[in-house]
Design a protein around this nucleic acid. Structure first.
Lengths: 151, 151
DNA sequence: TTCACTGCAAACCTTTTGCAATTCT
DNA sequence: AGAATTGCAAAAGGTTTGCAGTGAA
């Protein structure tokens, strides 16, 4: 099994991007992070770890990663989280069809994602009630996660 | 029927806040806006209309309004929208029990809110699948509204 | 070698804070 | 008059941009 950084860099390379040290550093930071990170936070984190990359570069890297479906934004706070890397040719589909269903812990900030089969019903209800053409959705539950709940 | 600015100011006054010009200006801007606004945008908007209020004050005003349930944040972009003012004694309940169900138009940015009865089922599914204790939720659909869809 | 990418520097936009002046009640 | 609130100024925080230099292919 290849790691997230390796897989992501391989995918970028296959698409004509270059494999660089700053890109690897960002991907590793995301891979290790428990909670989502902003580009700025990645910059700070790297200094803490004795590495460094320019903040401006990190922003550019995040744009590239997002455009290639390797990270996605958490709507609640605008921060980024690594994406699950789909095997080979599923990449394309995975990249364009993100579902953001998150459980955001108020205490530790950690974010779980969950599969949500029931949402289709809600979408159908909307369609029945309004003339709004739904293209995507975002659903977030805030609360307290298992670990924090146990004090 | 009292207007949103009047109602909101009355509620603030009843709670010991003062009725000031900057507060009225912010409330009027929110009342007239089609799309949600950030504090900074309100500051800009006011200049356009020949009025003015200090940006720092507007930020403080938004904090007060949010703390009193008179505005709420749109999760997708962090901007603010006026709340429906509940009649009299329902204020308290309305203030604490916000449900954010929005239809965000990709084209014009306008936001509709909708009532969503089906979401309880989704919450129950989460409860059954995880040990996460849900406190609140946010659900947003992005797409194209009726008006924009008709070119 | 070549061109994508990074680092640097500067500017910009947004938000926050302290303090003195204002203005509601 | 007294206290809450505003305006001002300054700083902090976060993000973007142009350009010259670097390094991956």
């Amino acid at each position: 099994m290849t790691s997230y950084p390796d897989g992501a860099l391989a995918m970028l390379k296959a698409r004509g991007y270059r494999v660089t040290k700053p890109r690897r550093l960002v991907l590793e930071a995301l891979d290790q992070a428990r909670a989502p990170l902003s580009p700025y936070e990645v910059a700070q984190h790297l200094r803490l770890v004795g590495e460094r990359a320019d903040a401006a570069s990190i922003y550019r890297i995040f744009h590239t990663l997002e455009a290639n479906g390797l990270v996605h934004r958490i709507i609640a706070n605008g921060k980024y989280r690594k994406c699950q890397l789909a095997p080979e040719d599923e990449c394309e589909r995975h990249q364009t069809q993100h579902c953001h269903h998150s459980l955001v812990c108020r205490v530790c900030g950690r974010i779980e994602e969950f599969h949500c089969p029931g949402l289709n019903l809600v979408e159908q209800a909307i369609a029945a009630q309004t003339r709004f053409a739904i293209e995507s959705h975002a659903l977030e539950f805030a609360g307290v996660c298992d670990q924090c709940h146990a004090h």
